[in-house]
């Protein structure tokens, strides 16, 4: 009996010494991409000059679904965060003869909650449209990998998840003189708990959050 007691005691002592605590419950309860309420504003600086302001404008309906409208510079984009997933309204166009030809519009899942280190997402779209008698084809592939938790590169935000995003777009104007045109963009996005995107790094730009104001519920 005494041996058993000693063994159990040693196990508890080892547990108490070797335990690795991290704020897992905090991360689970945090919103890593807040898209409400209206009025919330993120102000970013762009490396090399300039700034970008992102604001939650209001609620609206797009593609027959209620969503939140965000303004980023002069552009609007639309988001839904419900049922454990963040969805973005993708509006893809192909430039042909000076016109932006709409080719694909739909809600696509951006992330599934909760995020975890090593999580992967892959989304792809293949679509065609005919404009001025010419067939335009469009292929879009997005691969995302989640890493973390980690501190943002500027050292300001802890418990961030880094999203490594690779986007491949292949547009093909199927007429004489045109070949498939492939564009690949790679970026890293750091998401902080209850703040959202705090940093984005791509081959030609680095944007960093300088201020965040939550809106009023």
């Amino acid at each position: 009996m005494k041996n058993t007691v000693a063994t159990v005691t040693v196990i508890f002592l080892l547990l108490s010494l070797g335990c690795d605590s991290n704020p897992l419950y905090f991360r689970l309860s945090s919103d890593y991409f807040p898209i409400s309420p209206a009025g919330a504003t993120w102000e970013y600086t762009i490396d090399g000059g300039g700034s970008r302001i992102v604001t939650i404008v209001d609620q609206t309906v797009v593609g027959e679904r209620p969503c939140w409208r965000l303004q980023s510079g002069a552009d609007y984009n639309y988001w839904i965060n419900e049922n454990g997933r963040l969805e973005k309204y993708e509006d893809h166009t192909v430039l042909f003869n000076g016109f932006e030809v709409p080719i694909y519009q739909a809600w696509i899942t951006m992330f599934q909650w909760p995020l975890a280190n090593g999580m992967t997402f892959r989304d792809s779209v293949s679509a065609q449209a005919v404009s001025q008698g010419v067939t335009l084809s469009h292929t879009w592939i997005r691969n995302q990998t989640v890493a973390g938790p980690e501190v943002s590169p500027d050292g300001v935000w802890s418990d961030c998840y880094r999203i490594h995003q690779e986007e491949i777009i292949i547009n093909w104007i199927q007429t004489a003189g045109f070949a498939p045109e492939t564009t690949t963009s790679v970026r890293n996005i750091w998401l902080a708990p209850d703040v959202g995107m705090v940093m984005m790094q791509s081959a030609d730009s680095l944007i960093t959050l300088v201020s965040f104001t939550g809106g009023e519920e």
């Binding site: 690795d20 704020p23 897992l24 991360r27 280190n117 938790p149």
Partner: peptide
């Protein structure tokens, strides 16, 4: 989650 595993706590 989604094929990933967070550090245990």
């Amino acid at each position: 989650s989604g094929g990933g595993i967070d550090p245990e706590s």
